[in-house]
Amino acid sequence: DLSALRVEEVQNVINAMQKILECPICLELIKEPVSTKCDHIFCKFCMLKLLNQKKGPSQCPLCKNDITKRSLQESTRFSQLVEELLKIICAFQLDTGLEYANSYNFAKKENNSPEHLKDEVSIIQSMGYRNRAKRLLQSEPENPSLQETSLSVQLSNLGTVRTLRTKQRIQPQRTSVYIELGSDSSEDTVNKATYCSVGDQELLQITPQGTRDEISLDSAKKAACEFSETDVTNTEHHQPSNNDLNTTEKRAAERHPEKYQGSSVSNLHVEPCGTNTHASSLQHENSSLLLTKDRMNVEKAEF
């Protein structure tokens, strides 16, 4: 173990290094160091905050020279020094078990990766560091076993998940096959086929009936047209017969005018059967003409 005197000496050296690497504005270890034209180094955030307070150039807090945003430059070497100082402080805390008085939040800088452990060898070769390295080497064999167990647990979990997924996939297939086998029997399929065939026959029977009705309507229309044509021909046949009657009536009127007047009046009210309204109107006109002729003949006879 380190003596108290040596611990104090190391602590004083760390404090001196820390004062050199402090920012003059925030009085902390410089984060993202930036250098000016006057070779003074500050935190990048502190300098941008200072420049944004005034429009135009501002003055350096140490030498009062003008500073602009374009004049600022990043210093990589200074950032490396800060990183190495942080590593020294971490090693000091691990070796002594004491917390550094002016320690900052170094938890963000710590890294437990194997590459980081290899890099620590180049920091300080001390008894405390050696003991700590031995402890780490002793704890390393235990870690692979834990990793193997965790991997086995994960693989077993994956296997159970896969088996569950396969079961879920197989179950719908089985149910679907069961439904297909038990849903419709052979008799049901035959009945469905016969039902479809009967429906098709009914459709075939319905369509000819409609065509037959249309044919019957067409035949009825044709018969009505033929009947009207026969009526017209009958009226045409009746007209010459009426003319013959008129000639006979004229002759009778010349011989017996008194008797014919009474008979002509009675004939006005008689309509021949089986004739249309057109034929009756023609008869009325003929009878009126005959009456006028008879009157003329009677007057001539009187004179």
Rank of each mutant, 00 (worst) to 15 (best):
D1S: 08
L2S: 11
S3H: 14
S3G: 07
A4T: 06
L5T: 08
L5W: 02
L5M: 08
L5C: 11
R6Q: 12
V7E: 06
V7N: 05
E9P: 10
E9V: 07
E9R: 10
V10C: 11
V10N: 15
V10S: 11
V13I: 03
I14F: 13
N15K: 11
A16D: 07
A16L: 03
A16H: 01
M17F: 11
Q18H: 06
K19Q: 03
K19P: 10
K19H: 06
I20R: 04
L21A: 05
L21D: 15
E22K: 05
E22I: 02
C23T: 15
P24R: 00
P24W: 14
P24G: 00
I25T: 09
C26A: 15
C26T: 15
L27S: 07
L27C: 05
E28Y: 11
E28V: 09
L29W: 01
I30K: 09
I30R: 10
K31N: 10
K31D: 13
P33V: 12
V34R: 09
S35P: 09
T36C: 03
T36M: 06
K37P: 02
D39G: 08
H40Y: 09
H40V: 08
H40L: 08
I41W: 12
F42V: 02
F42R: 12
K44V: 12
K44Q: 02
F45M: 08
L48F: 12
K49G: 02
K49Q: 03
L50S: 04
L51Q: 09
N52K: 09
N52C: 04
N52I: 12
Q53V: 06
K54I: 11
K54H: 13
K54P: 04
K55A: 07
G56V: 07
P57V: 02
S58D: 04
Q59I: 08
P61C: 00
L62K: 08
C63P: 15
C63I: 15
C63M: 14
K64F: 01
K64I: 09
N65R: 02
I67L: 08
T68S: 05
K69T: 09
K69S: 08
K69N: 07
R70L: 10
S71C: 12
S71T: 12
Q73G: 05
E74C: 03
E74S: 13
E74R: 05
S75D: 00
T76R: 11
T76I: 07
S79R: 10
S79T: 13
S79C: 06
Q80Y: 09
L81A: 14
L81V: 10
L81C: 02
L81N: 13
V82H: 13
E83Y: 13
E83F: 14
E83N: 04
L86F: 09
L86T: 04
L86E: 07
I88M: 04
C90W: 05
C90S: 08
A91L: 14
F92I: 10
Q93W: 12
Q93G: 12
Q93P: 10
L94I: 08
L94Q: 04
L94K: 13
L94E: 12
D95Y: 15
L98F: 12
E99N: 12
N102K: 05
N102G: 14
S103R: 09
Y104R: 10
Y104D: 14
N105T: 04
N105P: 04
F106Q: 06
F106A: 07
F106S: 13
F106L: 11
F106N: 07
A107K: 14
A107V: 11
K108Y: 06
E110K: 00
N111S: 12
N111K: 10
P114H: 04
P114L: 09
P114T: 06
H116M: 04
H116Y: 01
L117T: 15
K118Q: 11
E120V: 14
E120D: 14
S122N: 10
I124R: 07
I124V: 06
Q125P: 10
Q125F: 10
S126I: 11
S126G: 11
G128R: 15
G128V: 07
Y129N: 08
R130Q: 03
R130D: 01
R130G: 10
N131P: 04
N131F: 12
N131V: 14
R132C: 05
R132A: 04
R132L: 05
R132I: 01
A133F: 13
K134T: 11
K134E: 14
K134P: 09
K134L: 02
R135Y: 03
R135D: 04
R135E: 11
L136R: 08
S139Y: 03
S139D: 12
E140Q: 09
E140N: 12
E142Q: 09
E142N: 05
E142C: 05
E142P: 03
N143A: 06
N143F: 02
N143D: 09
P144F: 07
P144M: 01
S145V: 11
L146G: 11
L146Y: 02
L146P: 14
Q147M: 04
E148K: 12
E148V: 08
T149S: 05
S150L: 01
S150D: 02
S152G: 11
V153T: 12
V153A: 10
Q154P: 12
Q154V: 00
L155A: 11
L155E: 13
S156M: 03
S156F: 05
S156D: 14
N157G: 06
N157M: 00
L158I: 07
L158H: 10
G159F: 01
T160G: 04
V161C: 03
V161H: 11
V161I: 08
T163S: 09
T163E: 04
L164D: 08
R165L: 13
R165F: 02
T166S: 07
K167L: 13
Q168R: 13
Q168I: 11
Q168S: 06
R169G: 10
R169T: 04
P172L: 07
R174T: 15
T175M: 10
V177F: 15
E180H: 05
E180K: 10
S183P: 06
S186Y: 14
D188Y: 03
V190G: 06
V190Y: 00
C196S: 05
V198H: 01
G199S: 10
G199V: 05
D200Y: 03
Q201G: 14
Q201K: 05
Q201I: 01
L203Y: 01
L203F: 03
L203N: 14
I206N: 07
T207L: 01
T207P: 01
T207S: 06
P208T: 01
P208D: 14
Q209R: 08
Q209P: 07
G210T: 01
G210R: 09
G210F: 14
R212W: 00
R212Y: 02
E214K: 15
E214Y: 00
E214R: 02
S216Q: 04
L217F: 04
D218A: 03
S219C: 12
S219I: 01
A220N: 02
K221M: 00
K222F: 00
K222A: 01
A223D: 07
A224T: 05
A224R: 12
C225R: 13
C225E: 11
C225S: 13
E226F: 00
E229P: 01
E229M: 01
T230P: 04
V232L: 02
T233M: 15
T235N: 01
E236L: 15
E236K: 10
H238I: 14
N242F: 03
D244I: 02
L245R: 14
N246A: 08
N246I: 09
T247R: 05
T247K: 14
T247D: 13
T248M: 01
T248W: 14
T248G: 09
T248N: 10
E249K: 07
K250W: 00
R251H: 09
E254T: 07
R255N: 12
H256G: 09
P257Q: 10
P257G: 12
E258V: 03
Y260E: 12
G262P: 08
S263M: 13
S264R: 04
S264N: 15
V265G: 13
S266I: 10
L268Y: 03
L268E: 13
H269Y: 02
H269F: 11
H269I: 08
V270L: 02
E271K: 07
P272Y: 01
P272K: 08
C273I: 00
G274S: 08
G274P: 15
N276L: 13
N276V: 08
T277S: 14
T277I: 02
H278L: 02
H278N: 10
H278D: 04
H278F: 03
A279V: 08
S281F: 05
L282P: 08
Q283E: 13
E285D: 06
S288D: 06
S288R: 11
L290T: 15
K293N: 02
D294E: 15
M296W: 00
V298F: 00
V298R: 05
V298C: 11
E299K: 10
E299L: 00
E299D: 08
A301S: 14
E302G: 13
F303L: 11
